[in-house]
Amino acid sequence: MPTMNRRHLLAGTAAVAALSATPATMPVFAQTAPTDLSGKSILITGCSSGFGRLGALHFARAGARVIATMRNLPRPEADSLAAEAEAEDLDLRIVEIDVLSDEQVSAGVAEAERIAGGAIDILVNNAGIGITGPIELQDMEATQLMFDTNVLGYQRMARAVLPGMRAAGSGQIFAISSQLGRVIVPGAGQYSPTKFAVEAMFEQLAYELVPHNIDVTIIQPGGYPTRIWVNRNRYTAALRERTPEERRAAYPALVERMGTEDGSGRTADPADVPRAIAEIIAMPAGTRPLRRAVHPGPKPQEAINRVSAETQVAWLGDSGFGPWIRAVHH
């Protein structure tokens, strides 16, 4: 049987597989050999630590030309990443981008395209923050920072790379979401709301980019031991300090945990995420999954992913948007 992809679907040469047999997400699986990413240009945000740093090195070791970005340059994290890349003779450049800044996003993407020699092949939207605590305690300072970073930052980056990708007639965008973009844990602050927004925004984008042959994949990691815990505790402790006692007293159990979680009990390998991304990059265009759950442990979001995909196809699959919807949920 020939492989189905969105070009076949749009041409009417293949039928949609039953979604119950082909869920919208695919399981994490071990790589038996390094994925070859030679000839690919990959732009990643949030490379000072965590998935971003690991991804930058992983993709460059696989042969890609990597443009790793972070804010507040110069900084020690950039120096150490550059030194590691130089020691291994990797094709990795570091560019300053603060995703909160329209100007830095525009200038940084232009520089990345200059380094790449044209349109960026792959954007990995990774920069993000977390601030925990009850929703009532999330003041406007915390709420605006969370949405501006985790949602609007992704939108700024996507808008900056898309003209080049559309002109090239190809491309790929990854959005790092979370299990908490589909399921909710009390006390997680605005993290789930921002990741729910990412899930919706990039699913819509996936449909709209079908005619341009640009793929979109939403990565849904579980909890990993990265520096996000350190940064989250710093932001959360500051929020706790400036929250009036009357509000804190209403949620004693949740407030007690604010700014104290360190993730030390988590042992999953954060390199799972860049490995999964590399595997998806290597898939033929038009066959890549809309969502990929990444974690060796439970993945409660997969049931929601499956029902969501089935619902979209049932609702709009036979409408004027049908070819786009069916192409994404191939």
Rank of each mutant, 00 (worst) to 15 (best):
V183D: 05
M146T: 12
A30V: 15
I129M: 05
L239K: 07
L123M: 09
V66A: 05
T3K: 11
W229Y: 12
A282S: 12
A206E: 01
G117F: 06
A168D: 03
P270I: 06
P252Y: 09
E84S: 03
G118N: 07
A188G: 11
E302W: 04
A82I: 06
I67L: 11
S177T: 14
R61N: 11
P74L: 08
G118M: 07
E84A: 04
N150L: 05
A253Y: 08
L19I: 07
I277H: 02
P244L: 07
E84H: 02
E203A: 06
L81K: 02
I129L: 08
I129F: 00
A116P: 01
G286M: 04
P76N: 11
T194K: 04
V183M: 10
N126R: 03
D139H: 13
R288I: 05
Q301A: 14
A56S: 14
S20L: 08
G46F: 01
R232E: 13
E136P: 07
N231C: 13
R247H: 13
G12R: 15
G286I: 05
P300M: 12
E88F: 03
D89R: 06
V185L: 15
R65N: 08
T217S: 08
S49D: 13
P300D: 13
N213Q: 13
V28H: 03
A167F: 06
L43W: 00
R75N: 14
M4P: 02
V16R: 08
G169W: 08
A327I: 04
G63S: 12
R53H: 10
L81A: 05
R166F: 03
I97H: 01
A237Q: 15
V66N: 01
G187D: 05
A24Y: 01
R242W: 08
D272E: 12
N213V: 10
T25C: 06
L162F: 03
S178V: 05
R248W: 04
T45G: 08
A64Y: 00
A293Y: 01
R288W: 01
Q31N: 15
A112K: 02
Q144M: 15
A21D: 14
L81H: 03
A116H: 04
V95E: 01
D121S: 12
Q301N: 10
M283T: 10
Q312C: 13
A83K: 14
L54N: 06
S192A: 14
R75I: 05
V210I: 14
